[in-house]
Amino acid sequence: MVSHLEDDDMATQELPIQEEIAGQCVDAHGGAIGMPQLCPEWMGNQIFWLAVTLIVIFLILSKIALPRIAAILAERTGTITNDIAAAEDLKRKAVEAEDAFNKAMADAKAEASRIVAEAKAEIQADLDVEIAKADAEIAAKTAESEKAIAEIQEGAMEAVQTVAKDTAKEIVAAMGASADARSVTDAVNARMKG
């Protein structure tokens, strides 16, 4: 221990050497002699504490830290995968919903046009019936009217004939000639036909 110190210069010899502090590797001022890295005195201490430290770090890492971080990372990967799957599911559902909506829309449109067509047909049928009834009534009324007209006409003709006969008789009589009724009637009839 002391041998190294004795190698030292005379200046240090004058100072009281504190052998408790000054080991092989430290001079009397507490300064390093050479490279402290090569001091064999301290190596045991360093190796011992290094071993303790490494074991502690290893236990902390392998028991707590690494499994936890691995779990966090796995959980995150899982969450991301799930979220992507859920997003795809939702997208698919949206597409399905859109399809369903379109289908319902098309159905509704078809239904609506069907109802419209049905209503139209019903109305048309009613209308046809009514028209037919009306036509029949009109026809009946027309026939009646025609009959009435024909009757009236006939009546009128007869009246005209009667008037014409009478008038012709009167005229003939007035003119002083007596005409026989039959010839007057024939003449009027012939005239009327003409």
Partner: peptide, 14 residues
């Protein structure tokens, strides 16, 4: 090199 000296934390012993 003094920064590399190994010192006891408590007391001045070896």
């Amino acid at each position: 090199m003094d920064q590399f000296i190994v010192k006891p934390l408590f007391g001045d012993g070896p």
